[in-house]
Amino acid sequence: TIEDAIKKLLKLAQKGQPYTFGDFTVTSEEEAKKLAKWLKKQL
């Protein structure tokens, strides 16, 4: 689910690992949080 993807994304971001989700490449926890907010709006 999208919720699971968001959780995984935040965990990876906390470890400092870049994470690619579709067109987004997230390289920081701050970016992960922005992406998570955006994804929730898409639901």
Rank of each mutant, 00 (worst) to 15 (best):
residue 1 T to R: 09
residue 1 T to C: 05
residue 1 T to K: 09
residue 1 T to Y: 11
residue 2 I to N: 01
residue 2 I to R: 01
residue 2 I to S: 01
residue 2 I to G: 01
residue 2 I to T: 02
residue 2 I to K: 01
residue 2 I to L: 10
residue 2 I to A: 08
residue 3 E to R: 12
residue 3 E to V: 14
residue 3 E to K: 12
residue 3 E to N: 06
residue 3 E to F: 15
residue 4 D to Y: 07
residue 4 D to A: 10
residue 5 A to P: 01
residue 5 A to W: 15
residue 5 A to M: 15
residue 5 A to K: 08
residue 5 A to E: 12
residue 6 I to F: 04
residue 6 I to T: 00
residue 6 I to P: 00
residue 6 I to Y: 04
residue 6 I to S: 00
residue 6 I to M: 03
residue 6 I to H: 01
residue 6 I to N: 00
residue 6 I to D: 00
residue 7 K to F: 05
residue 7 K to D: 13
residue 7 K to N: 09
residue 7 K to S: 08
residue 7 K to L: 11
residue 7 K to T: 08
residue 8 K to E: 14
residue 8 K to A: 13
residue 8 K to T: 07
residue 8 K to V: 10
residue 8 K to Q: 12
residue 8 K to N: 08
residue 8 K to I: 11
residue 9 L to G: 00
residue 9 L to Y: 03
residue 9 L to T: 00
residue 9 L to K: 00
residue 9 L to N: 00
residue 9 L to W: 11
residue 10 L to R: 01
residue 10 L to S: 02
residue 10 L to T: 01
residue 10 L to N: 02
residue 10 L to V: 05
residue 10 L to Q: 04
residue 10 L to Y: 03
residue 10 L to P: 00
residue 10 L to D: 01
residue 10 L to M: 08
residue 11 K to F: 13
residue 11 K to E: 14
residue 11 K to Q: 14
residue 11 K to W: 13
residue 12 L to T: 05
residue 12 L to M: 10
residue 12 L to C: 15
residue 12 L to Q: 03
residue 13 A to T: 06
residue 13 A to S: 05
residue 13 A to M: 08
residue 13 A to K: 01
residue 13 A to N: 04
residue 14 Q to R: 02
residue 14 Q to A: 13
residue 14 Q to N: 09
residue 14 Q to K: 07
residue 14 Q to T: 04
residue 14 Q to W: 15
residue 14 Q to G: 11
residue 14 Q to P: 03
residue 14 Q to H: 07
residue 14 Q to V: 07
residue 14 Q to F: 13
residue 15 K to D: 14
residue 15 K to C: 15
residue 15 K to T: 10
residue 15 K to Q: 09
residue 15 K to A: 12
residue 15 K to P: 03
residue 15 K to M: 13
residue 15 K to I: 12
residue 15 K to R: 09
residue 16 G to Y: 11
residue 16 G to F: 14
residue 17 Q to A: 07
residue 17 Q to Y: 15
residue 17 Q to G: 07
residue 17 Q to H: 10
residue 17 Q to L: 15
residue 18 P to L: 12
residue 18 P to K: 03
residue 18 P to M: 08
residue 18 P to I: 11
residue 18 P to W: 14
residue 18 P to Q: 06
residue 19 Y to G: 10
residue 19 Y to N: 11
residue 19 Y to L: 08
residue 19 Y to T: 07
residue 19 Y to F: 15
residue 19 Y to K: 01
residue 19 Y to D: 05
residue 20 T to Y: 04
residue 20 T to R: 02
residue 20 T to E: 06
residue 20 T to A: 08
residue 20 T to C: 15
residue 20 T to K: 07
residue 20 T to N: 07
residue 21 F to W: 14
residue 21 F to C: 15
residue 21 F to L: 06
residue 21 F to D: 02
residue 21 F to R: 01
residue 21 F to G: 05
residue 21 F to V: 07
residue 22 G to M: 15
residue 22 G to H: 03
residue 22 G to W: 13
residue 22 G to F: 13
residue 22 G to V: 14
residue 22 G to Q: 04
residue 23 D to C: 15
residue 23 D to F: 12
residue 23 D to E: 09
residue 23 D to M: 15
residue 23 D to N: 10
residue 23 D to W: 14
residue 23 D to V: 13
residue 23 D to G: 09
residue 24 F to P: 15
residue 24 F to C: 15
residue 24 F to L: 15
residue 24 F to R: 01
residue 24 F to N: 01
residue 25 T to F: 10
residue 25 T to R: 02
residue 25 T to K: 08
residue 25 T to P: 02
residue 25 T to A: 08
residue 25 T to D: 02
residue 25 T to G: 05
residue 25 T to L: 15
residue 25 T to V: 13
residue 25 T to H: 12
residue 26 V to K: 03
residue 26 V to R: 03
residue 26 V to Q: 04
residue 26 V to H: 04
residue 26 V to Y: 06
residue 26 V to T: 09
residue 26 V to L: 03
residue 27 T to P: 03
residue 27 T to E: 03
residue 27 T to Y: 06
residue 27 T to H: 05
residue 28 S to V: 10
residue 28 S to E: 04
residue 28 S to N: 10
residue 28 S to W: 06
residue 28 S to Q: 03
residue 28 S to I: 12
residue 28 S to A: 04
residue 29 E to G: 04
residue 29 E to S: 06
residue 29 E to A: 10
residue 29 E to N: 05
residue 29 E to D: 05
residue 29 E to L: 14
residue 30 E to K: 08
residue 30 E to F: 12
residue 30 E to I: 08
residue 30 E to W: 08
residue 30 E to Y: 15
residue 30 E to T: 12
residue 30 E to N: 09
residue 31 E to N: 07
residue 31 E to P: 01
residue 31 E to H: 05
residue 31 E to D: 13
residue 31 E to L: 11
residue 31 E to M: 07
residue 31 E to K: 03
residue 32 A to L: 09
residue 32 A to I: 04
residue 32 A to E: 01
residue 32 A to D: 01
residue 32 A to P: 01
residue 32 A to V: 07
residue 32 A to H: 05
residue 32 A to R: 02
residue 32 A to F: 09
residue 32 A to M: 08
residue 33 K to D: 05
residue 33 K to Q: 09
residue 33 K to L: 13
residue 33 K to V: 10
residue 33 K to A: 10
residue 33 K to P: 01
residue 33 K to N: 09
residue 34 K to M: 08
residue 34 K to T: 04
residue 34 K to E: 10
residue 34 K to D: 07
residue 34 K to W: 12
residue 34 K to L: 08
residue 34 K to S: 07
residue 35 L to C: 02
residue 35 L to M: 02
residue 36 A to N: 02
residue 36 A to W: 13
residue 36 A to Q: 03
residue 37 K to E: 13
residue 37 K to R: 09
residue 37 K to I: 12
residue 37 K to G: 09
residue 37 K to A: 13
residue 37 K to D: 14
residue 37 K to N: 10
residue 38 W to V: 01
residue 38 W to T: 01
residue 38 W to E: 01
residue 38 W to G: 01
residue 38 W to D: 01
residue 38 W to Y: 05
residue 38 W to F: 04
residue 38 W to S: 01
residue 38 W to K: 02
residue 38 W to A: 02
residue 38 W to P: 00
residue 39 L to F: 01
residue 39 L to G: 00
residue 39 L to E: 00
residue 39 L to M: 03
residue 40 K to C: 15
residue 40 K to F: 12
residue 40 K to T: 13
residue 40 K to N: 04
residue 41 K to S: 10
residue 41 K to D: 14
residue 41 K to T: 09
residue 41 K to G: 06
residue 41 K to Y: 10
residue 41 K to I: 08
residue 41 K to N: 11
residue 42 Q to M: 14
residue 42 Q to K: 06
residue 42 Q to D: 02
residue 42 Q to I: 12
residue 42 Q to H: 10
residue 42 Q to C: 15
residue 43 L to S: 04
residue 43 L to D: 02
residue 43 L to E: 04
residue 43 L to A: 06
residue 43 L to R: 02
